[in-house]
């Protein structure tokens, strides 16, 4: 697993950055289902962050059902995650064709990204606010 570059001074809290990175690794297949994630201590020492941050990230992932904490053994990726990876693989061609069509309309990369973010933001605003953990 590639070491993530965590930026403490960006707006996102460090634990969320770590969660995002781990999710991304799982989605791209860098970490497979059933594999063990590094221990809290090792992860903290490698990334040079507070162990509590790692603990929170792992707990977040656990509450989202992506990993399970097995007492005494460590943190393991759930088998059910593989289902997610397949899903992601299925979604890839959808995105590819959409981007092809947008490029045919002569839109460049920045425009496409802006459109995507706008759309997601609108949907986010329309949804009831999900309760954020403090």
């Amino acid at each position: 697993m590639a070491a993530p570059r965590l930026n403490p001074s960006s707006g996102t809290p460090l634990y969320l950055q770590l969660v995002e990175h781990l999710k991304h690794s799982i989605a791209t297949g860098a970490i497979r289902a059933g594999e063990q994630l590094p221990s809290v201590r090792k992860m903290a020492e490698d990334l040079l962050i507070n162990p509590n941050t790692v603990v929170r990230a792992y707990r977040d992932l656990e509450s989202e059902g992506i990993v399970e904490l097995r007492h005494g053994s460590g943190v393991f990726i759930r088998e059910s995650v593989s289902a997610r990876t397949d899903l992601m693989k299925k979604a890839e061609p959808v995105i590819r064709s959409a981007v092809d069509r947008l490029e045919a309309l002569d839109l460049d990369e920045d425009d496409i990204r802006r459109l995507m973010e706008n759309e997601l933001a609108l949907r986010r605003a329309a949804r009831p606010r999900r309760k954020q953990r403090a």
Binding site: L6, L14, V40, R41, A44, L48, N50, P51
Partner: peptide, 29 residues
Amino acid sequence: EAVIRTITDEGRTVIFSSHLLDEVERVSD
């Protein structure tokens, strides 16, 4: 790394002063 290692040992405390704020942000509680 030494700071992290100290803190993962049970019951030990670290006080460190710095003006490199990104380091403080990384490791402090």
